[in-house]
Amino acid sequence: MQVQAYLFFHGRCEEALTFYRESLGAEVPVMMRFRDCPDPLPPGMIPDGFDEKIMHAEFRIGDSIVMASDGCTAQAPSFQGFALSISAPDETQARRLFDKLADGGQVQMPLGKTFFSPCFGSVADRYGMNWMVVVPQPT
């Protein structure tokens, strides 16, 4: 059994995927648009102009796969109540990832030493996605 995050960007999915490619080195092996659906969509299922939007995508960051879509509405995304956590091997890499995610976003907790990590911080990126960047405690 596996649990995976599925993120809905409400019209900004392709833009977000490009951002994650550039900032996190994400790979996007799967990207399907609504126009690619082999069966006709029910009338009114998606807003006008959504034919070119992303129906389903998968992106890989390291060994993790996250799924994404524009969803079926153009409303603003609301990523509340959860965060994606990304582990970095050292403080230099953590700072690089954190700074890229913070570009156009909002720092919630600056990177710094905590009782559980030599380097931890949290940030909401420009799409409102919450991220925690952490360097694991040495064992």
Rank of each mutant, 00 (worst) to 15 (best):
G128D: 10
A68G: 10
A68N: 06
I54M: 01
F50L: 04
K100Y: 03
S87F: 14
G81W: 08
A88D: 15
D39Y: 15
I61E: 12
G62V: 13
M109C: 03
D103V: 02
A76I: 03
D103Y: 00
I54S: 01
K53T: 10
D51G: 12
F79L: 14
P110D: 08
R35N: 10
I61G: 07
K100L: 01
S87D: 15
R96I: 02
Q108C: 11
Q108I: 13
P40D: 11
T73V: 01
E27P: 03
R96L: 04
S78C: 10
D63I: 09
E91G: 15
T73W: 00
F116S: 13
R96S: 05
F79Q: 12
M45I: 01
R60G: 04
V28A: 04
R126S: 12
V107W: 00
D36E: 09
P38G: 01
L41T: 00
E91H: 09
G62I: 11
I46R: 02
I54D: 01
K113M: 11
M55L: 15
M67P: 11
N130Q: 14
I61N: 07
C119M: 04
K100P: 00
A83T: 14
A74H: 07
I86E: 05
D51Y: 12
S122V: 01
D90P: 08
A124I: 03
A83Q: 09
R96Y: 00
V123P: 02
N130F: 14
A57Y: 11
Q106H: 10
A88I: 11
E91D: 09
R126T: 10
F59D: 06
T73E: 03
A57D: 09
M67K: 06
S78I: 06
S122L: 09
G44I: 05
S23V: 10
F115C: 14
A74L: 12
G49I: 00
Q108F: 11
I54W: 04
L101I: 12
Q108V: 13
P38N: 06
A102M: 08
E27D: 14
P40K: 13
S117F: 07
P43Y: 00
A68Y: 08
D36C: 03
M109F: 08
G49V: 00
P118R: 05
M109N: 03
C72I: 13
E27N: 09
D99T: 06
Q106C: 06
R33V: 00
Q75T: 12
A124H: 03
G25C: 04
Q93R: 11
Q75G: 07
C119A: 10
P29G: 08
A26F: 08
